[in-house]
Design a protein around this nucleic acid. Sequence first.
DNA 1: GCCAAAATGATTGACGTCTATCAATTCCAT
DNA 2: ATGGAATTGATAGACGTCAATCATTTTGGC
Lengths: 369, 369
Amino acid sequence: MKAPTLADVARRAGVSYATADRVVNARGGVADARADRVRQAIADLGYVRNVAAANLSQGRVYRFVFVIPTGTNAFFLHLRMILGAVAPRLRLEKTELRIEDVAAFDAPSLVAVLRALALSPPDGIALVGIDSPEVAAAVAELTAAGVAVVTLVSDMPDSARHAYVGIDNSSAGRTAARLMGLAHARGPGRVLPVLGSLTARDHRERLAGFRAILAQDFPQIALLPEFEGRDRAELVEQALERLFDRGEAISGIYSLGAGNSGLARALARFEGTDRRPVVIVHELTPRTREALGSGNFDVVIDQRPGAEIALALATMRQISDRLPAAPIRPIIPAIIFQDNMPEPEDSALLEAAGLDHTTAPPGRQGGLT
Amino acid sequence: MKAPTLADVARRAGVSYATADRVVNARGGVADARADRVRQAIADLGYVRNVAAANLSQGRVYRFVFVIPTGTNAFFLHLRMILGAVAPRLRLEKTELRIEDVAAFDAPSLVAVLRALALSPPDGIALVGIDSPEVAAAVAELTAAGVAVVTLVSDMPDSARHAYVGIDNSSAGRTAARLMGLAHARGPGRVLPVLGSLTARDHRERLAGFRAILAQDFPQIALLPEFEGRDRAELVEQALERLFDRGEAISGIYSLGAGNSGLARALARFEGTDRRPVVIVHELTPRTREALGSGNFDVVIDQRPGAEIALALATMRQISDRLPAAPIRPIIPAIIFQDNMPEPEDSALLEAAGLDHTTAPPGRQGGLT
DNA sequence: GCCAAAATGATTGACGTCTATCAATTCCAT
DNA sequence: ATGGAATTGATAGACGTCAATCATTTTGGC
C-alpha cells in the first residue's frame, strides 16, 4: 500500500541496493542489461524517489539566482522587495536566494552575468528574457550544465529555457483593448498606445494583441501611432504634454510599459473635468495605485509579481529535484480598478516578519506560549 | 552557519535531548523551569523543526477532506474535477484527499458531516462556509481537536476556522459595478442583479459591494430589485423571460450566483440585435465560457478554483506542520472577457495526469499567491 | 586458464526527528 | 528518613536516501 522504496526496486529487479542506487543516481559502472532491469522495476512499481529523504541525507541547499534589471522601474523594484521579503522564509526551507543586477534591455550585459554565473553554477536561474541569439546561447550552456533556467516576465521561446513564468502578454493586450472598447460604449474615439520599447517581446506582444481586438471589434475607435517612452517617466510626460498642448483629441491611453508617473503628471490638467481620457496601464506600483485611487487611471493590469516569484521558485525546485515537469500555465494577471485594489504587500510582509516558530502542538498538553 | 537541530537546542539549554524533545512535542512531564530554558534556547537559536525529517521518521501521511456541496452547480462540479485531478500527484507527496458530499445551502446536513468526520479526525478539512451557529460550533470542536479547518469560497468569520481561502466577495461586487458603469459610459441605464440566495454570505457581500459602487459613482444607473434564482437555471430563465416579455428596459445584468445557463437561454432573443444588456456573471464554466465566446456575456469574474485548492492545501499543510501561519491573502479573481479566456484546465490536467507534482506553496510567504 | 579490469554485492554512517524503553535522579508528603 | 511519584537522562531503532568503502564475482583479452 505504501510507496515503494529503492530497496523494493532493487529486490524486484533482482539486484543489490547498491546497483539500483548506481542506476538512479547515474554513477555509472553498471552493465546495460542490469540497468534496464532496474529501470523496468522502477516503471513497474511506479517508484518515485523520496526527495525529502534525499535532501536530508545530503544536507542539500537549493541555490537560486534571480537576474533582475536595475534602474528605477517600479515594477522591478517591487520584484526585488518581494524577493527580499521571502528570502528569510525560504532559508528555513533550505533555499538560498540571490539577486544579480543587470542593465535593463541590455543583452551583452545579461550575457556577461550569465557567463559569470556559469563559473559556479547555482541550481536555478530566473531571468527576464531578452530576444538575442547571444543570450539564447548562454542559456543553452546553462541548461546543458544542469542549471534550471526559467524566463520571468518576458519569454525567450526559442531558447533552451525550461519554462516561462509570466502572463500571456498578447492576451493582456487584447484584454486592454476590450476594456477600452467597453469604456467607449458604442461611441467613437482616438486611442494612444504608450510603450517602453518595441525591442521588448512583452511590449510587442501586448501592442499586437491590443491592436488586433480594436481593429476587429471596435472599428469606430481610431488608433494613434504608438509612442516609445523607453519606460522613462520624463519622456512619457513630455510627449503627452506636447500632444495635449497641440489639442489632440485623445479619448484613451493604453500604457503598456513603465514610466506611468509621467503619465499621471501629464493627466493632471484634466483634474476636475470630465474630459480625461480612459487610461489603462500595466503593473500595480505605489504610483499607479495612487492614480487609481484618485481617479486618474481607470484600470491597472497587474502581472502579480508575488505569484510569479512563487511559481518560478516552485518550477526551479521541481527541475532541480529531477521530477517530471508539470505543465506551467501562464500567470493570470489581476485586473484592478479603484474598487478592488489588494492591500499593499508591505503590511502583510511586515506582519510575517516577526514570527515565532516555537509553538507546541495544539492538541495534547495545553502548552501556552 | 547551518540550521540548528534539536540536539543543539538541548545542549544550549543544558538539558538532555529527551527533555528538549518532550518540550517541543508537548509530551508533558517537564518541570516549568526546565521547559522555559528549552523554550529560551529555541528562541535564542531560532530553531525551527525540520518538518521533512519529522515526517520521514513518522511515515506521516496527511489526510485532508474537502466538504463540497452536491448538485449540478457547475462551479462545484469543476472544483470536484480539479480535486480528482490533483489527487494522484498529491499521493506522491504523502497527501490523501477525500471529498465528502453535503447538500447545498444546508446547515444541518453540514453539521452532520462535520460531526461524522470528528469521529476519526483528518489532519485538515476545507468546507464551504454557511452562516449558522450550529456549524460554527462544529467547527470549533474540530479545531479544538487539532484539525486544521479552512473555509472555502464562502467564509465564516465568526467561527474558529483557521483561515478563509477565497476571493474578497465585496470587492468582486464592487468590481462588477465598476465594469457595469464603464460599459454604460456616461449614459443612463437600468441594471438587474440576479443571485442565488441572500442567505449565502458570499452572495450578500457581492450584492452589497455592487450596490455601493453603483450608488456612489453611477447615479445615472437605476438598480432594479434583485431576483433570487436559488442558483437554478430554470428559475433564472423564467424570471428573465417574464421581464423581457413585459418589455422592461434592462441595460445590464449582474448574475452573482449560479444558474447562468438559464440566463444564456433567456438572452437568446437578443441575438443579432445590439440591444442585449451588458452581462456580468461569476465563475468560468463550460456554459459561461461558451456564452463569452459567442458574445452573449461580456465579463466573467472567476474565483480560480485551482488556485483556491492549491492555497487551501498549502494552508492546511502549514497548520498541520505547526508552522507559524503566514497571513493568508484573498484569492485574486480572474476577470475574463472573450479575449483572455485561459485554456480549459482539462487538457492541462490530462497532460499532468501521469506524474508530476508540486503544489507551489503559494501561501508560503505573505504576498505570494 | 590466467590476470587485470569491470561489474556487482554488502555494509556502514550520516541526515534530523520521533517514539519508546529503562535507568537514574530528584521531589514531596508523610 | 522513607517510599512513591515525578522528573530527567541515556540510548536505540526507524524512516529513505546518499556516499563511500571493501570484498567478491564476472567478464574479456591473450
